[in-house]
Design a protein around this nucleic acid. Sequence first.
DNA 1: CTGTTAGCGCATTCAC
DNA 2: GTGAATGCGCTAACAG
Lengths: 341, 341
Amino acid sequence: MAPKENGPRAATLTDVARRAGVSIATASKALNNRDDVAFTTRQRVLQAAEALSFTPNAMAKGLLAGRTGTVGLLTSDLEGRFMIPILMGAEDAFGAGQVNVFLCDARGDAIREKHHLRALLSRRVDGIIVVGRQTDPRPSLGQEIPVPVVYAYAPSDDPSDLSLTPDNYSGGRLAIEHLVACGRTRIAHITGDPTYAAAQDRIAGARSGLQAAGLELVGEPMFSEWTEHWGRDAAAILLQRHPDVDAIFCGSDQIARGVLDTARELGRKVPADLAVIGYDNWEVLSTNSRPELTSIDANLQQLGRQAAQRVFDAIDGVDIGEGTHHLPVRLVIRGSTIPRR
Amino acid sequence: MAPKENGPRAATLTDVARRAGVSIATASKALNNRDDVAFTTRQRVLQAAEALSFTPNAMAKGLLAGRTGTVGLLTSDLEGRFMIPILMGAEDAFGAGQVNVFLCDARGDAIREKHHLRALLSRRVDGIIVVGRQTDPRPSLGQEIPVPVVYAYAPSDDPSDLSLTPDNYSGGRLAIEHLVACGRTRIAHITGDPTYAAAQDRIAGARSGLQAAGLELVGEPMFSEWTEHWGRDAAAILLQRHPDVDAIFCGSDQIARGVLDTARELGRKVPADLAVIGYDNWEVLSTNSRPELTSIDANLQQLGRQAAQRVFDAIDGVDIGEGTHHLPVRLVIRGSTIPRR
DNA sequence: CTGTTAGCGCATTCAC
DNA sequence: GTGAATGCGCTAACAG
């Protein structure tokens, strides 16, 4: 790139006004479509602005208006699979509303989070979305923040904050209901780390679904990592110990992939002999397996969009309420639970 | 969240000054560690600032200073696998330097990109990183932008821009050299969409590596999608047509996963009978396969960090040069090419 | 219709 | 040491 030798600094309203031969006030009015300006004058101003490729200084505007048209997105960890869709949803919702998003990644570090928060407040963001990496409650930023805050994915531990999180309980229940609807009665559960609220919530939902059908889980839920490896190992153990299982509800698509692998190796036909359902609907995994994987989609992009909408509302002075809201999830049916033709 | 009833608007320097019983000039000096202020006065000011949890208005500062301490990250598509690491690297580099990042996702739409660009310029970002989704050249934003621009991943089609992109040629060569070093001589290549520069560059690198070893590719490169499905199908075709291949270089980890799958099904031991190497080092795929997948890592986080550094330099008035720079990639050896114990 | 004026919050002269 | 005054770029009242 050519060295931007402090190149032609961006044109200012004064420049435009001078070039058009009017005062800056008139120029301002012309550019902002106020109606108290003569047609020909407006033409001259617009033309001058065009010629100088004038771009209004949003900061100066913000200084006046008291709002900046920016929001902060404070993530605890960009790495994971869950941030991105949320981030996309939020960016999308804000972008349409002329709001720009400051992205801050705290990398799971409280110090860094505090630091970023300061930076955001110093930039006078109009609102903040805090995105956590798990659905376990996280520490609140506190009530002293001078702008609205919405928590996404990881709810705040303070019930007077507003939090949006996926409804894992319903997800678990939905998965079971689907398996039951497919005629399965011997259903087992392989999942990840038991310390995750997500794992426990899904189990609770699953149990309620089973109970409603007069069924019980085959064996106890099997816990370990959220990995394909664990899925493979767990399935091997499970199918040996309970050869009569006819469905496995998996706590993640990764685990489900492992389960499918072992099932094929042991000669269990999926879905004929064994139905498998995953969780997360991570398409790279779910649509590339054999058979393709039925899964629960948490609608994360939608969640991000909603969080943005709440922040919008709050900025507009609307009371957005408080507490943790559990957003609906969705069943995506593929070949691992229903034979496809 | 409690309705932020236009809550206690953030404290201003004037508030602090009044509370400390000094003028705003003195308050400013005290807070900015200028030395022409009495010790006790400074104490009072600091204390007042603390009490009001004063946060300086970065916009007002920016208005004065002529720079905002913000940069724009203009991505063409957040969805893909490649954006995130780059984004993380850039955010990390900037964050450490007190710079905040505006994230804009154009979603592959030129109109939206133009719109976001306007917004960024209006916010007076000090610099811009443009991140593309493929390594094919993309249209330049043009030379008229009043701030430095660095292109990451997708290079600009204008050679007077500065672009950073992974060195796919070296990646292809590295892959082959590794296979040759493992004693393989019958090497085939399965890859994705032939219209991707990435696919062609890797092939060119691979061919040069083969030539250096006095070898040739077994058959022609097999093109289709970057998916696991294609990897499975292609491997089946390949192993039937050329049963003597002893190594497959795959254009992506997804493809490689498919290849591993078919290999196992056909009873080919990996890596004993058949070495498989992937590309991208997408850990979800590469570390969960059996055996784990040797792969080429494009060091994308590093790329993002470097792009940020270049923008930093340019902002500081350093000439950052121009042209497309190909950044080194890295071989990650796992069990699919070398037996592990 | 158009121009003058007064700030938004802050750092920076320059007098006192 | 400290404070009054100036201006960054812009919009909103007003005055002409």
